[in-house]
């Protein structure tokens, strides 16, 4: 699993960091290729990659599965928790607290740039149209910069 998940709070005040301290075999990896190496080094064990993240971490998980298949690694599996940015934004805007009461005023969104290196800008267009919120994506090459409203 990726390191930033170690401290994420879980149920009953637990975290993976605490579970590790209690003896669970949890390894931090920088890349999905490290999970391949772990599975190769311990063929008798079941290695579960805790896959999490938005569109930028999903392709690396897919590459890992392809490599594992090619290498016929039997002991590697994926606990898939990948999510999509536009869906998350949709959920925020559909939340009654935001939609009806104006409890949290949202004027617009700054889209994550590296996500758009994968999905481009088109997946945001229905959101901008439906909710009338402008979305800008920063720090991309000029050809991909756009403003939707």
């Amino acid at each position: 699993m990726y390191g930033d998940l170690m401290r994420a709070p879980g149920s009953q005040g637990q975290s993976l960091l605490r579970a590790k301290a209690l003896g669970a075999d949890i390894r931090m990896v920088y890349s999905t290729l490290d999970a391949i190496r772990l599975a190769e080094q311990a063929p008798s064990r079941e290695v579960v990659f805790f896959a999490i993240g938005f569109e930028t971490t999903t392709p690396p998980t897919a590459v890992m599965i392809r490599i594992a298949e090619k290498k016929r690694l039997k002991g590697l599996s994926v606990f898939c928790n990948h999510v999509l940015t536009p869906s998350a934004m949709h959920s925020i805007l559909e939340n009654p607290k935001i939609r009806d009461t104006g409890g949290v005023p949202i004027n617009g969104f700054i889209g994550p740039a590296h996500v758009s290196t994968i999905i481009g800008t088109q997946p945001y267009e229905p959101l901008a149209e439906q909710f009338g919120k402008p979305i800008v994506i920063a720090d991309l090459s000029r050809s991909m910069c756009c403003r939707l409203s």
Binding site: T32, T56, T57, P59, T117, I118, S141
Partner: peptide, 12 residues
Amino acid sequence: LVHVGYALAKID
């Protein structure tokens, strides 16, 4: 652009 050990895109 390098992210979690992978090149994600060619950049200027």
